[in-house]
């Protein structure tokens, strides 16, 4: 059986505002610990993205300036991305990368920066930034789990898809509807960084399983010794819930 996985990090040199490479380290670490041969590919500005070589795609967040550069670059690959996502390609999109999957980002002056239009989702700039620790409840297969991290975004995102989770503490997508992130086919979109995956290993495993299914393989994963991860998760969750 083919035991290899290929993870693609899009524009790590530009979209690295919130240490998103930490997410890659966790995906690689947890896949290798299960015996998979993992190949990572960093697609930098000006290099060709070959979506057929990706089993999982990571899209991080950058400053506004960098975000615009990436948005333009990715437009070339929109059709390829859409068809792969339709077939279940897992994508982890954080913060700016998350916004980029939508239709547009509306600036305070009303100008709309176009997104990739992968999702029917829009983002509008708010007056202030939504900043702070965040905890959400995530349901998967009848199980309830928490996801924790930090959010820092000026945009308010709205959509009708299932969210990644419901807000326990913090702002989430827009500070109003109690939803955080998005789940659509293999896409996990979220404002949560910290980075997201080190302290939320269950989300990492969900993405790895999705990558295995995308390759048409058995998606069962063995358990790993991750007590430290859960100790940090629980400590931070307690701290967040104790905050005023």
């Amino acid at each position: 059986m083919d035991r290899s996985l290929r993870f693609v990090h899009l524009f790590p040199e530009l979209l690295n505002l919130y240490a998103d490479h930490g997410n890659m380290a966790v995906l690689v670490g947890r896949a290798r610990a299960r015996g998979f041969a993992v190949e990572t590919v960093a697609v930098r500005l000006g290099t060709e993205l070959r979506i057929e070589n990706a089993d999982l795609v990571l899209l991080g967040g950058g400053s506004d300036r960098e975000q615009v550069i990436v948005g333009k670059e990715l437009t070339r690959y929109r059709e390829d991305l859409l068809s792969a996502i339709d077939r279940g390609l897992p994508v982890l999109a954080v913060c700016g990368g998350y916004q980029l999957l939508g239709e547009y980002y509306e600036l305070p002056n009303g100008e709309r920066v176009p997104g990739l239009r992968v999702l029917e989702m829009t983002t509008r700039a708010g007056r202030n930034r939504l900043i702070g620790n965040v905890a959400i409840e995530w349901r998967e297969g009848g199980e309830r789990k928490t996801i924790i991290g930090f959010e820092n975004h000026g945009g308010r995102t709205t959509h009708e898809y299932p969210p990644l989770g419901t807000v326990i503490k913090g702002f989430g997508n827009n500070g109003r509807d109690g939803k955080e992130g998005v789940l659509y086919k293999g896409i996990v979109g979220t404002y949560i960084h910290g980075p997201l995956l080190p302290k939320n290993p269950h989300v990492a495993d969900r993405l790895i399983r999705a990558a295995l299914r995308y390759r048409g393989q058995d998606d069962t994963l063995s358990a790993l010794a991750d007590d430290l991860e859960w100790r940090v998760h629980d400590a931070v969750l307690r701290q967040i819930c104790g905050e005023k």
């Binding site: 690295n16 919130y18 240490a19 490479h21 930490g22 380290a25 900043i131 702070g132 620790n133 930090f150 820092n152 960084h193 910290g194 980075p195 080190p198």
Partner: peptide, 9 residues
């Protein structure tokens, strides 16, 4: 700084 993600950088 309340955001500790910089530790990963």
């Amino acid at each position: 700084g309340r955001d500790v993600s910089w530790l990963w950088d």
